[in-house]
């Protein structure tokens, strides 16, 4: 398998203004993620996991240094270009699912495809495929408030996967789930990673998630502390 960097991070620094001074959340991160990885940012609370994930997801920009995602420098993208990168190439999974409550399961999953102007028939097929992957094809008419937490997170996974993005970014995806549901969705993601070659990057301190990661990137005080790679 060809090894190509899909994410390349160089000397990345992120500072947040805090009163009159600044707080350094990321302090010179160096990191390369290759296509098809199933990797995770691991570390204690406040170590900078979410901050790094947000920059990779073009939801935030570096203070200095570089973050290249699919060859594009996040710091130099216009908001339009960043939106386009997210729309076409990135899928997000959040701790609190973040589904749109008034829309059905089907409509929530369909939404990213509307932004990409797929035809109605293509949309239908892709949404149904995606819901098959997460085992929710029978709940298309339900709305998020009627679903369990595990089901909601599976809808969120289907929504992130429906456009077959290059990268899925998942921030604490299991934080609100019990053990059985956590294992369930993690297995789903492992399968999707294997079958669709989607790159997964997690931010987590949940042992269950960590146990599934093939590569663990330990962050400490805004720096990469060490890494562990699971032998195949």
């Amino acid at each position: 398998m060809e090894i190509s960097p899909i994410i390349r991070i160089e000397k990345l620094v992120k500072k947040f203004p805090m009163g009159k001074s600044e707080f350094t959340a990321l302090n010179g991160i160096e990191l390369i993620i290759t296509r098809g990885e199933f990797a995770g940012l691991v570390g204690p609370s406040g170590s900078g996991k979410t901050t790094l994930l947000n920059i990779v997801g073009s939801l935030d920009v570096p203070s200095s240094g570089e973050a290249f995602v699919l060859g594009r420098s996040i710091g130099n993208l216009t908001t339009k270009e960043a939106a386009r990168l997210r729309k076409e190439n990135l899928g997000f999974i959040f701790q609190s699912y973040n589904l749109l409550a008034v829309y059905t399961v089907y409509e929530n999953v369909e939404f990213p495809l509307l932004l990409l102007n797929y035809s109605a028939s293509d949309r239908k097929k892709m949404v149904m495929d995606s819901l098959e992957w997460v085992g929710l094809a029978d709940k298309i008419k339900s709305k998020p408030p009627q679903l369990s937490g595990g089901e909601c997170q599976r809808v969120a996974i289907a929504r992130a996967m429906v456009k077959k993005p290059s990268i899925v970014l998942a921030d604490e995806p299991t934080a609100n789930l019990d053990a059985a549901n956590s294992h369930n969705i993690l297995k789903t993601m492992v399968t999707l990673n294997r079958e669709l070659k989607t790159t997964f990057l997690f931010a987590t301190h949940d042992d269950k998630v960590i146990s599934y990661l093939r590569r663990k990137i330990f962050l400490l005080d805004g720096n990469v502390d060490r890494e562990e790679i699971k032998p195949n």
């Binding site: 939801l59 939106a83 997210r86 729309k87 997000f92 939404f111 932004l115």
Partner: peptide
């Protein structure tokens, strides 16, 4: 703002 955040993450433009 919450809904707006989701839509922005999905890649909708701010405008």
């Amino acid at each position: 703002y919450g809904e707006v955040g989701i839509r922005l993450a999905m890649g909708e433009e701010k405008g």
